[in-house]
């Protein structure tokens, strides 16, 4: 019997995936509501938004140049889609002890400077960012009316230059939801700043060498 338990636990070790990306939500997962402090001093939960048909949950921050580049586009998105039921809810997932530019006080300053029309929330203790699996800023999770994640990734395909945008991933995803469709693509990738927490070093590191499949790197993969 002991032997069976031993082998069972052993097999569990192998089946259980290695700590790859720290978990978090995938498309299709239902998100849990949260309660975080906004820059106006009030607590905000998703349940507060009575008319929302979904949420553009955006992990972003002050210090990251990629976040800054998207501020104006986020403001525009909110102005366009909040009245249609899809407000932007911005969350700063960084630990201000690691990145002082992302402190609550600095968030208030930035929100005033840019006159953010959306909530800009402090993720105290980095709990919500961890629950979502927010790895970087900016990192978008589009949630539908059932609180199910429908899209994860970037805002568009040209962070560096808004005039060069060809694919508006996020906006297309919102429109898809409005039309009762599933966003395609539902995942996109973009360069961003890693989320700053005290134990972020070596996080998700793949330290073992793997056998290289020579052709693997040259195959054009799909965007997922």
């Amino acid at each position: 019997m002991k032997l069976i338990i031993f082998f069972l636990s052993l097999s569990f070790l192998f089946i259980n995936p290695l700590p790859n990306d720290g978990g978090g939500y995938n498309v299709g997962d239902k998100v849990e509501d949260f309660k975080l402090m906004n820059v106006d001093g009030e607590y905000v939960s998703l349940a507060n938004y009575k008319d929302a048909k979904g949420f553009v949950i955006t992990f972003t921050c002050n210090h990251c140049p990629y976040s800054v580049m998207y501020e104006d586009r986020l403001i525009e998105l909110h102005k366009k889609y909040a009245p249609q039921g899809y407000p932007v809810v911005a969350i700063n997932p960084n630990d201000p002890e690691v990145q002082p530019m992302d402190s609550y006080d600095e968030m208030i300053v930035r929100a005033k400077e840019k006159a953010f029309p959306f909530a800009y929330l402090m993720d105290e203790g980095q709990k919500v960012g961890t629950a979502f699996g927010a790895k970087k800023t900016p990192h978008i999770f589009l949630v539908d009316s059932d609180m199910v994640v429908q899209y994860i990734g970037a805002i568009d395909d040209s962070a560096r230059d808004a005039r060069e945008v060809k694919e508006r991933y996020l906006e297309n995803a919102i429109v898809a939801l409005q039309e009762g469709k599933s966003p395609d693509p539902s995942y996109t990738k973009a360069i961003g700043c890693s989320v700053k927490s005290k134990n972020s070093k070596g996080r998700g590191a793949v330290m073992k060498k793997k056998k290289r499949a020579p052709s693997e790197k040259s195959i054009i993969k799909s965007d997922h």
């Binding site: 970087k136 962070a159 360069i191 054009i220």
Partner: peptide
Amino acid sequence: DPKMNDWIGQVDDDWSGTIP
């Protein structure tokens, strides 16, 4: 190359795009 969504996954499937 600004087409990040196209090339990040080609460098490595597991890469979400954060640096380093």
